[in-house]
Design a protein around this nucleic acid. Sequence first.
DNA 1: CAGGGTTACGACGAACGTAAACATT
DNA 2: AATGTTTACGTTCGTCGTAACCCTG
Lengths: 303, 303
Amino acid sequence: MNSNQLEVFCLIARVKSFSKAARLLHLSQPAVSAQIRSLEDHLGVELFERQPQGVELTAAGRVVYRYATQILALWDSMEKHLDSLCGLHNEELLVAASSCLGNYALPCAVYDFGQKHPTAKVRLEIANRQQIIGQLQDNRVQVGIVEGPLEELDGGFKIKEVARDTLVIIAAPQSPWAERQTISLEDLRTEPFILREKGSGVRRAFEQVLADHGLSLEELNITAELGSMDAVKSAVQAGLGLSLSTRLAVKSELRRHSLYALELAGGSVTITHYLVYRTGCYQSAVTRKFIQFITSPGEQIFC
Amino acid sequence: MNSNQLEVFCLIARVKSFSKAARLLHLSQPAVSAQIRSLEDHLGVELFERQPQGVELTAAGRVVYRYATQILALWDSMEKHLDSLCGLHNEELLVAASSCLGNYALPCAVYDFGQKHPTAKVRLEIANRQQIIGQLQDNRVQVGIVEGPLEELDGGFKIKEVARDTLVIIAAPQSPWAERQTISLEDLRTEPFILREKGSGVRRAFEQVLADHGLSLEELNITAELGSMDAVKSAVQAGLGLSLSTRLAVKSELRRHSLYALELAGGSVTITHYLVYRTGCYQSAVTRKFIQFITSPGEQIFC
DNA sequence: CAGGGTTACGACGAACGTAAACATT
DNA sequence: AATGTTTACGTTCGTCGTAACCCTG
């Protein structure tokens, strides 16, 4: 019934493991199990022999695999055909994203989109929150992805939530803070602190948190203001001080243990990312496709 | 993403109407609209030009139609292939159903099942509630469909709800009662009344209702006891009296206005139909397929 | 104990039917 | 009025992630 199930099935058939497929699909193991169980129920046959060290296709599974690849190929080919029909080529789409998502999560999504629609041209620009809002208002980009909330945008724009992230304080591995789980605003006041430039969404969210506790940036021990997230990361890794980020933007560093993340003691602070685009006026086919792609619940924009 | 949507789409493309397709699929119009909207969203194109007197395929729609037929054909062929693999042929399935569903709803489902699995042999027997329970216990049928509740069955049987229906009093079109919506038990006591034979599930449910109000069948003005629902219908249409049925069993007569249905004044009485089959022991492939077919939420057993 | 799989449960989104609205003949 | 489609809303079912559990090297 469902082509998603076929895709999951085919991937498992190739890698011979539910959990490997789950990682590749950015899904949990139980979700993958459920998909296969559902497919097996629909077809009325067992597809895999579950073995301790992995899974193996049954005879029925091999039959389904042959058909599934054909069906999926047809589906793909249909979408390609529709793209050419809609004139998806020769239209350029400009996406402006803030650095948190734009540098670390979106490139993957843009890559996936490019794979799906090879004739489409998408350009991704990284800018800070203020700049993106300006570009949207001036109609210089078709789609923006920024941190909320977005009161400053008047009508004529559609705003959709695409991701939630938490604000974290990042520290070098050799920092004494690396052992800790949380840090209080009080402790932050005395620590050497590195900031992003004004206009950054993370900085803005942090100022909001400070204000909620009757504090301001001036009361911190700011040792540097840097223009990009990468510069901030390097500075923190060099032991120049603590800084501020979203968990997503340092995901790979956390895995490599080249940075450590601390939650704020007062409770974790959520940053919501929104997709913003102009409504009412003409939207190119590429624009519509991209918006649909990013907001479709199945798609994972975080790789 | 979803092959159901493709089927709905293909049917609409052929009959050129959402509502006609909805009737053929036993779905509501809005449900069909929603399916197409969802498919259009997924593909990012309009599939139909909505016109006042119906709908017409767009250019994109014609492309999708060509692919959809191929995809659905592949899917069908895959299921056929799996059937032959499982040895679905040469196995016979005996289903025993009570007359309410067995005569008026299930034949359609059995027909659909036969279309889907041409090599499977299904035989449908109509019997009353008591007989079916006996046949299940003696293992003379694999699947039973009877009215609940089912306290008399011991363990070793799986019981699944398949349909809910309401008890109605049926009257001839020329009867004065045909104008009314409801009838009270008090009024029923004096009216000439026709009954099904003992052992019928409808009769049993009705006796339960009477008992709840401190009444019994003896206090009614019973003019005949007939052995089949069709005999009862004819007698009622001939004006011999009122009788008892489930709404489903007289669905087509209600549409043709050859019978009228009254609810009981005390509140409508629900009759739940259950699918029953033996667990633990061996189940043939046909049996499993049929159970899965009947209980799959998408399938409509009422035509 | 680690790796691979399932089950249990709560949350969110999809799909349905009913009812009402709107548009066209 | 009658037909055909959409919108709105409440219910039900499917899918996801988290957490816990079972089994094997």
